[in-house]
């Protein structure tokens, strides 16, 4: 089976909410989180989805 969607990266300001599984980027504040997510979105060619105020995931579709 081919996996067509996957989480490429997790960007969060709350390190308690993730235990890994995908590369995780822990940021100091929301602004840094948004900047990192925007960069990773462009680099990884994925879409940055917002799960909550403190967590973004980059998903390859």
């Amino acid at each position: 089976m081919e996996i067509s969607k996957m989480i490429l990266a997790i960007i969060t300001t709350n390190s308690n909410k993730t235990i890994g599984g995908a590369p995780t980027f822990i940021c100091e504040n929301t602004e840094e989180m948004e900047r990192t997510a925007a960069n990773l979105e462009a680099i990884l060619d994925g879409i940055a989805h917002g799960l909550s105020k403190e967590m973004y995931i980059i998903v390859k579709h």
Binding site: A37, A38, E41, I47, A48, H49, G50, L51, I57
Partner: peptide, 19 residues
């Protein structure tokens, strides 16, 4: 929030405020 809607139909999740 992050959900994009047309009328009441959910289209997709866009996280970044810039996007």
């Amino acid at each position: 929030k992050a959900g994009l809607y047309v009328d009441n139909i959910y289209i997709m999740n866009i996280g970044l405020p810039e996007r």
